[in-house]
């Protein structure tokens, strides 16, 4: 009897793993579609915030404050309803209503805006802590502004921001769980939370379905973390020579969550 119970629990677990791997791809898609756009946008916004021009800096500050200061959940609702409001006057006549209102487009759009604000704050902090001595040395050897940026500011900024940015990416992945709570679900296009909820409504087994969904989130978070850690190790390779090759390990610090 005990044996049977254990094996049936295992079977249910494996069935859930099989059922949920496709939904997991939707979460992965949302994260993957947002990061390549969000990353340059974040850096652009950080540079804008650091700009000496008042309107440029002001705009970046307000954008970052607005998106960091409000829940992503509301941002999703807000953008979806704004897009819907323009449906009759803009998207329909242009014939792009199917694309613009599609969760697979709108989801990454909102995530990009959100992650670029969070990322910008991280890169801005790093930008401010680029070693002054290196900047002065670069000026002293006669580098132009563009050259100083390319060879001093940029690599330093990236290196300083990377650990925090890694966390931002992991938490961006976590926030993809909100997409289908706010945007319409089309056919079988369901993400982990959605599918887990659907499975729960069938047999009320909250422990099994939510654990498996959580397991997928955990696994993919770990993969993201290792990839970013590998990039970080390449970025800081030349800094290893000093203390017996002991570089600072990346740590997930949950500080930048939405």
């Amino acid at each position: 009897m005990e044996n049977l119970l254990a094996s049936s629990a295992l079977v249910a677990f494996v069935t859930d793993l099989k059922l949920l791997w496709k939904p997991a791809l939707f979460n992965v898609y949302f994260a993957f579609a947002s990061i390549p756009v969000g990353f340059p946008l974040a850096i652009g916004l950080a540079l804008m915030k650091n700009s000496s021009s008042w309107p440029v800096s002001r705009f970046a500050r307000m954008f970052i404050y607005a998106f960091r200061g409000s829940p992503l959940f509301i941002q999703f609702f807000m953008f979806y309803s704004i897009m819907l409001a323009f449906n009759q006057s803009l998207w329909k006549p242009m014939g792009i209503d199917g694309v613009v209102l599609h969760p697979l487009f709108l989801g990454p759009l909102v995530l990009v805006l959100n992650t670029s604000a969070y990322g910008a704050e991280i890169f801005y902090g790093a930008l401010r802590s680029v070693p002054k001595g290196q900047l002065e040395a670069a000026r002293a050897v006669g580098m132009g502004r563009a050259n100083v940026f390319k060879s001093v500011t940029w690599p330093n900024m990236l290196r300083l921001a990377w650990p925090a940015y890694t966390n931002e990416v992991v938490f961006l992945f976590h926030s993809t769980a909100l997409v289908y709570f706010t945007l319409p679900v089309i056919n079988e296009q369901k993400d982990l939370m959605n599918k887990a909820g659907e499975l729960f409504e069938k047999d009320y087994n909250v422990f099994l379905h939510f654990s498996v969904a959580g397991l997928y989130f955990l696994l993919i978070s770990v993969v993201i973390f290792f990839v970013f850690d590998w990039i970080y190790s390449r970025m800081t390779k030349h800094l290893d020579t000093g203390s017996a090759g002991k570089r600072k390990k990346l740590k997930i610090r949950p500080q930048y969550v939405r």
């Binding site: 729960f200 939510f210 955990l218 978070s221």
Partner: peptide, 20 residues
Amino acid sequence: MVRGIPDVLFFLFFPLAFEQ
């Protein structure tokens, strides 16, 4: 646990688990 799993999941899970 909060580092690897989204907060929304816990947010839905705890009340249901407690109820059960």
